[in-house]
Write a protein that binds this DNA or RNA. Structure first.
Length: 654
RNA sequence: GCUGGCGUAGCUCAACCGGUAGAGCACCUGACUUGUAAUCAGGAGGUCGCGGGUUCGAGUCCCACCGCCAGCUCCA
């Protein structure tokens, strides 16, 4: 009895009729062509990714993916994770497998093994994995029942797999999909490529600890990171690109350009050099100016507070681990530290702003009251998370707390997102927005959270900004919108944030007198645009690769006198530029011009100004823009003309 | 905090199987007075992260601590 026909629609609209049950591979071979049949890696049937061996059992839209489609990288990396896990279990018997997904630019696989994998082990595994690829073993798909799955992985002694199987069936699955290549079997949703040979080439990158199910109370596993590409050439190109990205690393550039330093005596706290400080204070000034232009006032509050404040704000209960405590010398040394503590350095500005708000009677006419602060904060971060400027223990935020009426929330959030977008665009930074809801470790009842989340979400949607949902990622006092920017090696960092807080006004018993002459409770928005100056500068260093725009460059121009007789004119030019508020220095070394140019280039100074006989005679300078090639040399310019040009570039763009 | 790796001159990096710590750049001195990415010569610079141990002898091997790097947990 022949199967009924099904109609397959291709992306170009063409339709083919084939007997139901024809596999995708057969279909491609007979109805499209041998070339594509050979190149195909997986298929998409009605939007669902499937293996080529899948039968077409109903009429559907069909698209075929090959190595030319970017989507296929994710597939071969998932294949690669299976290949790596199979050779690890062969080379290191007794190792248990857990999970192994693909990531943005590779994959990882988490293993449970008593002994750590050494770098030498990784080499061994990588070699064996690439041999497994060459062995060209087909990926075979099979569906089994829960009992079959439990029997299979139970027989192999895979405890973690058994746990996952229980979960999958508890969530309502009726079967489990197995994928085997050679003797080795794992389960996953798939799809996989036709065979291991199609993976291309695998490179293992590192081994690191990871917790089972991401919970630090669970067993620690060993995570092997790797990546895979269709060809060695693609892999080489990626490796080269990674090396280039590492040259932008702010920790490296910070040293080379002499912007900041760290000392073991103060881990996680920055020493800013004269150059770094210039960037820092320029950003501070720019933000102050913008805040003043947008209805904020700047205030300063104490750094050190009695713990009574933190008890009131809730930080004592929810955030104490991250706070630097000052112990009372009189207290009984046998008591635990938190009981001996009398004061703490502030980890956030909000509680002190709330105190400031309640220091006097407030009127509805003052709202929204926007308090801006750039005070120093301290957070006792775990040693392992410190990282250059992006994660520190002492930092300053461009922080603000906005006290307003509920009816003003939408408008204020819209204004804020516009402000944030404006600042990021001035730097050319690409950002993504995330909406984070109540965390497990939260303060306040669900009714308050429902209200805060709904209000913030409604305001966010009014702005029309695309956003990602992050359930459980909110602050302990309220939901938030975070703005993330990626660093040079693709790690995402949170910079700006908008947080809605109904709770603090309750805890601090904040009130304002409304038009009805009655007392009302305000709402608070916590917000930062740069996030922290430290992290923001770290991101900027990488974003610009150290080539700061003129307005932000620590040194905006360097004068290069060709010979000693030109120093007098160089000094005159410098005096004029300094008077115009520009940052300019003179190279007094006795090098050749070529050497001075090279030094200025390496220091990434926006303008090198050559002054020699011609310039002295003409009363001008010959600027050379930072960069390479002939176009960098701007030729002889009258001093006024150059001052006008650099003056425009020195203006703050927001 | 956890897992793994690393720590030699201001910077970048050498130093074999345990046997007297070295280079380039930067710095200082002198000569050169220079036109768009490196002038030449000389000099100075080290508690090999810190502390213990093994050894006739430790930068090298072992232990503990500090810091840094990657990842995890956590976060601006």
């Amino acid at each position: 009895m022949s199967a009924p026909d099904v109609v397959i629609t291709l992306p170009d609209g063409a339709q083919k009729s084939v007997p139901a049950g024809t596999t995708v591979a057969e279909f491609v071979r007979t109805h499209i062509g041998a070339g594509l049949a050979k190149a195909a890696l997986f298929a998409r049937v009605d939007g669902v990714d499937v293996d080529l061996a899948r039968p077409l059992d109903r009429s559907a839209q069909l698209a075929i993916f090959t190595a030319k489609n970017p989507e296929s990288l994710e597939l071969i990396r998932h294949d690669a994770a299976h290949v790596v896990a199979s050779v690890v279990q062969r080379l290191f018997p007794g190792t248990q497998v857990t999970i192994g997904p693909s990531t943005d630019d590779g994959f990882y696989y988490d293993f449970a093994r008593d002994k750590p994998f050494t770098p030498e082990d990784l080499e061994l595994i990588e070699r064996a994995a690439n041999e497994e690829i060459k062995a060209d073993r087909p990926f075979v798909r099979k569906e089994v029942t829960k009992d079959e799955a439990l029997a299979l992985f139970g027989g192999l002694g895979e405890k973690f797999k058994l746990e996952i199987i229980e979960d999958i069936f508890a969530k309502g699955a009726t079967t489990l999909t197995l994928y085997s290549h050679g003797e080795w079997t794992d389960f996953c949703l798939g799809p996989h490529g036709p065979s291991t040979a199609r993976v291309g080439v695998i490179k293992l990158l590192s081994v690191a600890g990871a917790y089972w199910r991401g919970d630090h109370r669970n067993a620690q596993l060993q995570r092997i990171y790797g990546t895979a590409f269709h060809t060695q050439k693609d892999l080489d190109a990626w490796v080269h690109q990674q090396e280039e990205a590492r040259k932008r690393d702010h920790r490296k550039l910070g040293k080379e350009l002499d912007l900041f330093a760290f000392h073991p005596a103060a881990p996680g706290a920055v020493f800013w050099t004269a150059h770094g400080t210039m960037i820092f204070t320029t950003l501070q000034y720019a933000m102050r100016r913008m805040c003043l232009a947008n209805g904020y006032v700047e205030i300063k509050t104490p750094l050190l507070f009695n713990k009574m404040l933190w008890e009131k704000s809730g930080h004592w209960g929810k955030y104490r681990e991250n706070m630097f405590l000052i112990l009372d010398p009189e207290a009984d040394p046998k008591l635990p530290e938190e009981e001996r503590a009398s004061f703490s350095l502030k980890p956030m500005n909000c509680p002190s702003h709330h105190l400031f708000f309640e220091m006097k009677r407030r009127s509805y006419r003052e709202l929204p009251l926007r308090l801006h602060t750039q005070d120093v904060l301290h957070r006792n971060e775990a040693t392992g998370v410190l990282s250059g400027l992006t994660r520190v223990r002492q930092f300053q935020q461009d922080d603000a707390h906005i006290y307003l009426m509920e009816s003003q929330i939408t408008d204020e959030v819209k204004r804020l997102t516009q402000l944030i977008a404006k600042v990021y665009q001035a730097f050319g930074l690409q950002f993504t927005a995330k909406f984070a809801t109540r965390p497990e470790n939260k303060l306040g009842d669900d009714a308050l959270w429902d209200k805060a989340e709904a209000a913030l979400k409604a305001a966010l949607e009014e702005t029309g900004l695309a956003y990602e949902l992050k359930p459980g990622d909110g602050a302990f006092y309220g939901p938030k919108i975070d703005f993330d920017v990626a660093d040079s090696i693709g790690r995402k960092w949170q910079l700006g944030t908008i947080q809605l807080d109904y709770l603090a006004p309750e805890r601090f018993n904040l009130g304002y007198i409304g038009p009805d002459n009655a007392e009302h409770r305000p709402v608070v928005i916590h917000r930062a645009i740069y996030g922290s100056f430290e992290r923001f500068i770290g991101i900027l260093i990488e974003h610009f690769a150290g080539n700061f725009p003129v307005w932000l460059a620590p040194v905006q121009a360097r004068l290069l006198p060709v010979a000693e007789r030109h120093h007098a004119w160089a000094e005159e030019v410098q005096a004029k530029m300094l008077a115009a508020g520009l940052r300019v220095e003179i190279d007094r070394s006795h090098g050749k011009l070529g050497a001075m140019i090279r030094d200025a280039q390496l220091a990434k100074i926006p303008y090198a100004l050559v002054v020699g006989d011609k310039e002295v005679e003409a009363g001008g300078v010959s600027p050379r823009k930072h960069g390479t090639g002939k176009e960098a040399d701007l030729g002889l310019l009258a001093l006024d003309a150059f001052l006008a040009q650099i003056g425009r570039e020195a203006e703050i763009p927001y």
